[in-house]
Amino acid sequence: MTDILNAIVALSNFVLIPGAAYGAQLALGALGVTLIYGILRFSNFAHGDTMAFGTMATILVTWGLQSMGISFGFLPTALIALPVGIAITGLLLLGTDRAVYRFYRKQKAAPVVLVIVSIGVMFVMNGLVRFIIGVGDVNFADGARFVINARQFREMTGLDEGLAIRSTTLITLITAAIAVALLFWFLNKTRTGKSMRAFSDNEDLALLSGINPERVVAVTWLIVAALATTAGVLYGLDKSFKAFTYFQLLLPIFAAAIVGGLGNPLGAIAGGFVIAFSEVLVTYAWKKVLEYLLPENLEPSSLVQLLSTDYKFAVSFAILIIVLLFKPTGLFKGQSV
């Protein structure tokens, strides 16, 4: 019995909890991608770097707050800085739209042209981030490190396995839940949100109904700024900030958005968790859990890790291909432009 409990604790500690946090981060990222796809109808390659920019802006504000001696108690100061980071990112995205994307929208350029344009934006944003904050690792998490650490948990429960809940994990889950709730409330209950969905559903009819496309687009960029910055900051708090890793998140984020069905917000969330859990499950070394569960003579000698962690991209990729083969519009019905 204790063995089973220990196994469950180990599983939660190394798979379920980290997977949930990572899934929430991916889901927020994928929501941004899927919204841009639904409204502006292109795959935004600059999204990873938008996340990086938003995080950088938040970090700079955090540093400013810290130097003024402001902190947020046991919560990371970055959470106070987040709204400012979002605002700065929002301005950047609106500016980018003005300077870059709007021209192609007016021309009714093909989606692939916009994708290439977004590659140019990606370069600029990536350069901007490197230019301002450099390429090194930036750790900006402060506040309490653990809600409960492994030792405390062991003493509390008397189990061999410890369960550590890092505060960043909890913050990630709560913040993501709030962000998603706000987003869905906005999309489903407000006039502007509904007009965005209408625009995404049927652009021509939205125009005939008097919906102003430029306003819809602007609101979309602002929401994307909020989602991307939040996702980036949560990821950065959880791991650390490095310009390059954000670019690499592009693949799992796109995989999540496509798996869920591009253009479908609900799908993006589901896709985020599907990708995250698959990655963690496949790259986790199951030895410990199996040792608790299996009789002594069956215990594995190897680590029982299906794939080395470096292959986590392969997991996103494999799931993507499988879904595309079986259900090309994704798990939830997405758009097919």
């Binding site: 292109f42 796109f254 292959y311 996103s316 990729f317 993507l320």
Partner: peptide
């Protein structure tokens, strides 16, 4: 074989993925 014939964005993401996988293989 897997990704051609699908939408252009899908090919893009698929190729992005295969490139990362090749590098992962070389690294591992």
């Amino acid at each position: 074989k897997a990704a051609l014939g699908l939408r252009s964005d899908y090919l893009a993401i698929a190729t992005l993925g295969i490139a990362e996988i090749v590098i992962a293989v070389l690294k591992n």
